[in-house]
Design a protein around this nucleic acid. Structure first.
Ligand SMILES: [Mn+2]
Ligand SMILES: [Mn+2]
Ligand SMILES: [Zn+2]
Ligand SMILES: [Zn+2]
Lengths: 154, 154
DNA sequence: ATGTAATTGATTATCATTCTCAATTATATT
DNA sequence: AATATAATTGAGAATGATAATCAATTACAT
């Protein structure tokens, strides 16, 4: 996955920014992390590798990672901002389980097309969008049902 | 618009909660506010009416307004949470202009149906969803174009 | 090797939202 | 109407994620 590193190096060179050891540690950490992550998770991942970078630097690096097209903001799960890798990955949206927090990814061409149509109708130029569906996943479905029953009986 | 007040009163009675003057001021403020608003805006609106309620109480009352079906969280515009009235109003989603901040509301039956289909496929029970399209509104389109040109020439 | 602007870590600041707690109040009951 | 009691309030402190400061360090073009 040195492709992330290469991409980032290239981006930094173009912007005449420096490729520091801290930034190197940060992309390395990101290549290891597989799913959705917060700033704090990058910081932790670096610690796992028995290394360290200040949290301030992690926060400062995130906008660079976004601008270079490596990651994007994904969800707004209340408190902290959640990111994910997007380089060479197709766009998708998310379902979030209100019970267990599980994130299910999906992509649907028709939804995307409809959005374009809607924007066109409103003379709006879309840049990005977030479609987040909150609800209950299959596993949590049964728990929910029995809970609802109890509530009805009480 | 005493219907908001009635609805809230009814909700509170059911929950055996008190209908205080503070809560009265808050729904009155909300009936006045027309579009999307934050906690702070409720607080300000009450001040405009030459009255006052502590900001802590405003924050404490918001969950009650949500539970009673009067308002809902609408957008996550970075910093503060934005709400809007939903009682007796149809569901809709939002486009947000990255340049001027304008919010355009839209609703599309097909998008809604597609979402249901997708959830069904994934055995997911949808409860609520947020579809937020960020981009540029018609008015800001020209500004954007000339700006882009300059960037290309430099 | 040098110069310089970019970067870092440590710390402090911000800012929305939540929490604490003593004082007050709405409402049901007498 | 007086009482009892649990809910509510306001003021301020606490929280927690993220941003800003600033002196010391470092990457890198020349
Ligand atoms: Mn994802
Ligand atoms: Mn709206
Ligand atoms: Zn679940
Ligand atoms: Zn605009």
């Amino acid at each position: 996955m040195a492709i992330y590193e290469e991409q980032f190096k290239y981006f930094l060179k173009e912007k005449r920014l420096k490729y520091t050891k801290e930034r190197k540690k940060i992309i390395k950490a990101i290549t290891v992390i597989q799913k959705h992550f917060a700033a704090e998770d990058i910081h932790q991942q670096i610690r796992k590798q028995k290394s360290r970078v200040s949290l301030a630097t992690v926060y400062r690096t995130i906008p660079l990672l976004i601008d270079s097209g490596l990651i994007t903001e994904t969800l707004y799960r209340g408190e902290k901002v959640v990111y994910e890798k997007i380089y060479n990955k197709p766009h998708h949206d998310h379902m979030v389980c209100l019970s267990c927090g599980k994130i299910i990814e999906f992509s649907n061409e028709n939804v995307e097309k409809l959005q374009e149509d809607i924007c066109h109708k409103h003379f709006f130029i879309p840049v990005e969008h977030y479609l987040e569906i909150k609800g209950y996943c299959q596993e949590c479905r049964d728990k929910l049902k029995s809970k609802t029953k109890n509530e009805l009986n009480s």
